[in-house]
């Protein structure tokens, strides 16, 4: 019953897929399962317990770190959304001298190794423009927010530009013909078209910020702790189910965001099909 190209129906390939799937998912699965273990050990199952989650919420530093991470993610998402959209509009609408180099420059933050960007920000924010440390919360997170916005706005620009490629220029001309100016065209015609791209870009920027360890590691001063930094220090010193519990929470958060993105894009596709 299977054709020659139904590779998925062949057992060697199924076995291969199962192996790769196990490789990708078993470590994560074990991590989640043992976060509910009623024991310090993370290899022997001793019964279901939520004690490690309770411990997390009692750890004031961890809760604060989580708050910091959310604030950084939200602020850098907002900045990169604005900058990325503007950059996308610039490249989509205009033809100008230096456009090709600018495009290359815009792609650079995506490809420059994280470690290089990290040390560059470290030097920049200590030696060149020292970020004042005594600022009130959340302004003391400014350096990290700037660093995150810098690498994520390129991604936003990429996503929004892909969305703009499908924009029908005749719509803008029709609006102009009916008497709308630049601003009205932007507000009433362009923005509604861009919404799926903006949502996807925002979710991407938020996840990137929440995920980032290396750049934050270099940019943050000794006093600002973010969630990944806190988890890193926990991992360095001890492997306890508390780390599993913290990780599980973050996995749930990203899985939720991914599901939201997929659902929104799915709704968008359905709308287009209708």
């Amino acid at each position: 019953m299977k054709g020659p190209l139904d590779y998925l129906a062949r057992w060697p390939l199924r076995l291969w897929l199962a192996m790769v799937g196990a490789f990708l998912y078993l470590p994560l699965l074990a991590l989640v399962v043992f976060s509910f273990n009623d024991s310090r050990r993370i290899t022997v199952w001793r019964g279901f317990s939520l004690r490690w989650y309770a411990e997390l919420f009692d750890d004031g530093e961890l809760v604060a770190a989580f708050g910091n991470s959310l604030v950084i993610a939200a602020a850098s998402t907002l900045i990169s959304l604005i900058l990325g959209t503007l950059a996308a509009l610039l490249l989509w609408r205009f033809r100008f001298a230096g456009k090709a180099p600018l495009e290359a420059l815009l792609g650079l933050p995506i490809v420059v190794p994280e470690i290089c960007l990290g040390v560059a920000f470290l030097v920049f924010f200590t030696a060149i423009v020292p970020w004042p440390t005594e600022l009130p919360w959340p302004l003391n997170l400014g350096a990290i927010i700037i660093a995150h916005a810098t690498f994520s706005f390129s991604f936003v620009a990429l996503v929004v530009r892909a969305r703009l490629a499908s924009f029908d220029g005749a719509l803008a001309e029709a609006a102009r013909d009916l008497g709308a100016g630049e601003w009205l065209i932007f507000r009433d015609i362009m923005v509604p078209h861009m919404v799926p791209g903006l949502v996807a870009g925002a979710l991407l920027a938020f996840t990137l910020s929440l995920d980032d360890f290396v750049i934050t590691f270099f940019t943050s001063g000794p006093d600002t702790i973010t969630f990944p930094i806190k988890v890193y220090s926990m991992v360095r010193f001890s492997v306890t189910p508390a780390v599993n519990a913290a990780s599980t929470l973050l996995i749930l958060l990203t899985a939720g965001l991914t599901a939201l993105a997929l659902w929104l894009q799915g709704a968008d596709i359905a709308k287009q099909a209708a």
Binding site: L24, Y25, P27, L28, A30, L31, T207, L210, D211, F213, P228, V231, Y232, V235, V239, V243, S247, L250, I251, T254, A255, L257, T258
Partner: peptide, 12 residues
């Protein structure tokens, strides 16, 4: 897994 935090995957 691609969307899951790098640190967490390494820890796992």
């Amino acid at each position: 897994p691609f969307w899951t935090n790098l640190l967490i995957r390494t820890y796992a």
